[in-house]
Design a protein around this nucleic acid. Structure first.
Lengths: 247, 247
DNA sequence: ATATACATGTCGAGA
DNA sequence: TCTCGACGTGTATAT
């Protein structure tokens, strides 16, 4: 089965020869298409780490922005990949199709060698729209700024992303007594890492203000783990249960 | 162009009717194949957060383990997805193809509605092999255990994954003077988070041993950021530059 | 199922 | 370019 319509949005060959497959892939690169190849292949990666994969049937996707993905029939994550910004290359070697994707800084190389190509496709299309996502940490922040009493009565937000030597604080403000308050937001249940983060900010701000009065630190999240809760107590930090808005 | 060979490893239709596309998808599910659909669609997600995507051309992959991936022509990450363990469903509604993927705990739902299906494929294959990966934190640990002097002269490893109230320490040991040493490993350049992590372990171990002598904390990584370095100094922690083995 | 930390994490913002 | 922290993080392991 063959199908070559270069002007069309999709182009697909089944069971192609290596050279025919190469031509579809190369044409797909030229047309800024998403190129996919399914077949039996080995995969080698070398860069931040190194990996090797023996022959098996996999689905390879090459995007026009330079991203590469090698998927098996399991897992949400690709078994091998390359980030956007890579240069894709296709050629035939010893009568087999080879896909290669490289990038500099860091030097990384992904190489897929096909013993057998079952199908090759090129998908050209348009997608102008952007994802509308609700329920992020940003949404949680807006919720609190709109209604500070959700945190505690008479809390007054003074700044977001306030800079400290340890990094930017999510919300900085003061309580009814005029004490400085550092608020760290998390959209979901948190563990010890989030407590450490809050602690760094509180420490840094206490030094920064070189005030005698302690800075209050409040962790805002739907819930905390046991160990995180112990850490909070240990360091005199507080917790307020609050979720991002549902819609 | 049509191709229906149910016994074969691949099955593909181009420009199918919604019902024909549905049949290929359903048959792919039955055969434990990787199913892909390319076409113009809207995508809705609701679960830990919520998202909506207006119509555009996208590549959807449904895996037999329940994973779902929606890819645009940009980015390494899918614009929407569903983790393994979901139940995939396919049907026609108002003359259009609909793909739905759900899971309980947490309740999450992904729905892709196609205005137009340009291609649908089912890929059945085998992949027995496992990825051989080198250059992980585990490799770095083995390197140090094999040659403890890389850390410092006369360092003696006593345990890996030693438990403390704050969590498991990567390597626990003692130095030439017999002082307790906590080693935290990172396979790449680290920021403040890794220092906080090491600090938690050192604190916890000092309490656990309720010894008067301070516990040494050593961060092992290729390098550290400025801020992380300041935090190390601030808390009396140490740094040793070491990388995972290259091969 | 929950908790904890790793990951070739990826991604985006800010300096 | 580098740093830093969020992410519907995913993934594995141990409890």
């Amino acid at each position: 089965m063959t199908n070559r319509e270069s002007g069309q949005r999709t182009e697909t060959l089944q069971g192609p020869t290596p050279t025919a497959a190469r031509d579809v892939v190369a044409d797909g690169f030229d047309r800024e298409a998403i190129v996919t190849v399914y077949g039996r292949c080995t995969v080698d990666y070398d860069g931040r780490a190194s990996s090797h994969l023996e022959a098996g049937d996999r689905h390879v996707m090459l995007k026009p922005d330079g991203a590469a993905l090698v998927h098996t029939d399991e897992g949400q994550q690709p078994v091998n990949w390359q980030p956007p910004g890579c240069d894709h290359d296709v050629f035939c070697e010893d009568g087999t199709l080879v896909l290669e994707s490289r990038r500099p800084t860091p030097e990384e190389r992904l190489c897929v060698r096909f013993q057998e190509v079952l199908q090759v496709s090129a998908f050209a299309g348009t997608d102008e729209t952007e994802l509308a996502l609700v329920g992020t940490e940003e949404d949680l922040r807006r919720r609190i700024l709109k209604e500070p009493a959700l945190l505690e009565a008479e809390f007054t937000p003074l700044a977001t992303e306030r800079d400290t030597p340890a990094g930017a604080v999510d919300i900085y403000g003061e309580d009814a007594a005029g004490r400085a308050v550092v608020v760290e937001l998390k959209r979901r249940r948190v563990g010890p890492d989030a407590v450490s983060q809050l602690r760094r900010y509180v420490d840094a701000l206490e030094r920064d203000l070189h005030a005698d009065a302690a800075v209050r630190g409040i962790l805002v999240a739907p819930s905390v783990t046991d160990r995180a809760n112990r850490l909070l107590t240990e360091h005199g930090l507080e917790f307020v249960s609050l979720e991002p808005p549902a819609e």
